Computed example of a mutant assay.
Amino acid sequence: MSVLPSPALRDALAGWLSHLKALDGASANTLRAYQSDLSGFLAFLSAHNGDAVGMTRLKAVSQSDMRAFLAHVRAGGASARSAARTLSAVKGFFRWLAEREGFDPTAVLAARSPRYQRKLPRPLSEDAARSVIGTVADIAREDWIAARDAAVVTLLYGCGLRISEALSLTGAETELPSALRIRGKGGKERIVPVLPAAQSAVRDYVRLCPFPVADEPASPLFRGVRGGPLNPRLIARAMEQAREALGLPASATPHALRHSFATHLLAAGGDLRAIQELLGHASLSTTQAYTAVDAARLMEVYEKAHPRA
């Protein structure tokens, strides 16, 4: 049976999580995941050694301990991707703690992350993305709902917003400016240009909406049929119906429109750093996945069109 870590170590974990929240802007979901990862690591150490884990024991973690921990995680059914995330959390905590306690964290930081195949984003073609916008409007049962759904998916594709970001807009944005200040994951802010098509789509929705969204600047811009905040599942359902009508794959989700925004910008010569800023990615490596998508599409065209293929 595992033994609870020492009070000093519990305080250290709480301090690290507070640091992530205050300085790195980590989201609540990220903090919960990291806390779970670290709690699992500390529980493993206590069971592995048969005693409570304190600061002294933590400073003495060896490469052998790390190999045993990763084997334990994989034996518990975790995927390579999940194990890599857990190891990343452990390394982050040790890096932070070592700076404050003055010990060498090399044994932990040198642990090799399990290899896994990163999933490439699966964007829609430009024609399919445009067709989706029209189709979600066509399948709606009321004109104002058609305008609402079209406005939301236009923001996803035209501005590269996440569904949560689009639905966080308020009545203060009934007349969209030429650029929006969006607060994304971890509270990170970015400036996103707004296309005239998105401004027009939102304007049409506001005109037809039976609820006074323009008079309630602090309330949600996009409403459900009873006037409450629009549930993102309704947009996912509209996308599902649209992709079935258009014969698109199951990967044609609301988030795929954000992928499409990035991929089409890159294909048109967009700068990778600029696209990173528009998407609100904390790391350029996340944005670089779109270069792999573009290269894959280029090879597909090459193989189909080259006379020697």
Results as ranks from 00 to 15, higher is better:
residue 137 A to N: 00
residue 171 G to S: 08
residue 172 A to Y: 06
residue 92 G to S: 15
residue 209 C to K: 00
residue 298 L to P: 03
residue 126 E to R: 13
residue 253 T to D: 06
residue 254 P to G: 03
residue 34 Y to P: 00
residue 236 A to N: 08
residue 254 P to V: 01
residue 174 T to C: 14
residue 86 T to Q: 13
residue 56 T to K: 14
residue 249 P to Y: 07
residue 280 G to E: 02
residue 302 Y to C: 13
residue 18 S to V: 07
residue 257 L to C: 06
residue 90 V to D: 01
residue 211 F to G: 07
residue 293 V to P: 04
residue 243 R to L: 07
residue 265 L to V: 11
residue 204 D to H: 06
residue 150 A to D: 00
residue 306 H to T: 10
residue 137 A to E: 01
residue 289 A to K: 10
residue 35 Q to T: 11
residue 192 V to F: 04
residue 207 R to F: 01
residue 260 S to P: 06
residue 73 V to C: 08
residue 181 R to V: 15
residue 173 E to I: 11
residue 175 E to R: 15
residue 81 R to W: 02
residue 263 T to M: 07
residue 246 L to N: 08
residue 73 V to K: 01
residue 240 E to H: 11
residue 73 V to H: 02
residue 255 H to C: 11
residue 94 F to K: 06
residue 30 T to H: 04
residue 4 L to N: 10
residue 68 A to Q: 12
residue 54 G to E: 05
residue 303 E to L: 14
residue 104 D to F: 10
residue 18 S to C: 10
residue 297 R to M: 13
residue 70 L to F: 05
residue 6 S to C: 13
residue 121 P to L: 06
residue 48 H to K: 06
residue 139 I to P: 00
residue 232 P to W: 15
residue 233 R to E: 14
residue 62 S to Q: 13
residue 239 M to W: 01
residue 5 P to Q: 10
residue 305 A to F: 06
residue 135 T to E: 07
residue 282 A to T: 13
residue 307 P to V: 09
